[in-house]
Amino acid sequence: MVDWRLYEPLINFARKRSMWIVAFCTGCGGIEMPPLMTSRYDLERFGMMPNPAPRMADLFLITGYVTPKTLKRIIITYEMQPDPKYVLAHGSCPLNGGIYWDAYNAIKHLDKYIPVDVAIAGCMPRPEAVMDGIKKIMDLIETGKADGWKRYKENYEYYKKNQDELFGEGWREKTARRWIPWLMGREKKREEE
């Protein structure tokens, strides 16, 4: 209700200088994250802090190949993040499936399912490359062009179509109830004994 446009530069500066990373390391790039936090590369200088809960995180690092199973979790976590959220895709696998180009269980184009703001090439980019990526995304935020989340919200049907195409309709409920039939079966068996 209040018009914040006047304070946009300050807020963008704050968003730029205090990005919290969702501690959700997919694929082989997860091990690249700690060096960024330790004394040599220290991302905390830029106010970036790993944070386990998506509800309060902004930056979502997709580090490495994405299997359908992980993609389901990524989509759920992504949707839980509050709005100005940015996705940083590391390595070549999220771009085109990389070395798993013909595998049944690796996603070929991550961009079809969730919007990617900055993609960093390299089959697991070195910390310096990641730092460049982060520099790039901070500039995008500065200029207000990091609009991955706006793209997701506007053409949500496109993304939803792709997701349902891959996982089938109502996949959330199905995945949640995946174990229940087997557990019920075991319960019945145990009662019979």
Binding site: M1, I76, T77, A176, R177, W179
Partner: peptide, 26 residues
């Protein structure tokens, strides 16, 4: 609180369970 953006009501099943979807049965 009211200076911030408007709020969206979320059901009980939409909670962070390390990304796993949550169902009312379990």
């Amino acid at each position: 609180y009211f200076l911030g953006a408007p709020v969206r009501k979320v059901p009980v099943t939409d909670t962070y369970q390390s990304g796993n979807p949550v169902t009312m049965e379990y």
